[in-house]
């Protein structure tokens, strides 16, 4: 196994997340896409750590841990916003939240 395979898996995961974020209009689906992209980034961190010259430094592992923590915070805030928006406009479609459009 080479680093290429892991990076390719991560790239495919990232592309899935990107496609979901761009093409779905449901705010929760957009969030799911973002989570997939974050997962792809974490996979890259761990993969590069595994193939690094000095794995004892554990930089990639620690970065992945911090990134997971940030992702958790992002999910909590994102879903709170979705619930608030739903309460105001009775919809979770991103297109319906267009009050600021001129």
């Amino acid at each position: 196994m080479t680093l290429q395979i892991l990076l390719a898996i991560s790239a495919i995961l990232f592309a899935f997340g990107l496609a979901a974020t761009l093409s779905r209009s449901n705010a929760i689906m957009i969030l799911i896409g973002i989570e997939l992209m974050l997962g792809a980034a974490n996979l890259n961190f761990v993969a590069f750590w595994r193939f690094s010259e000095n794995p004892a430094a554990m930089t990639g592992v620690l970065f992945a841990i911090f990134s997971i923590a940030v992702a958790a915070a992002e999910a909590a805030v994102g879903l709170a916003i979705i619930i608030l928006v739903h309460r105001r406009i009775k919809s979770v479609e991103a297109d319906d939240a267009s009050n600021l459009k001129g």
């Binding site: 790239a11 592309a15 990107l18 761009l22 093409s23 779905r24």
Partner: peptide, 25 residues
């Protein structure tokens, strides 16, 4: 939940994803 956000639509989103994937690979 097929309607388009940012004017791309499912096909557009998939296309962008594919282009990015091809570039990355």
């Amino acid at each position: 939940s097929v309607s388009a956000f940012s004017g791309l639509g499912p096909a557009g989103g998939a296309a962008v994803g594919f282009v990015v994937l091809a570039a990355l690979l």
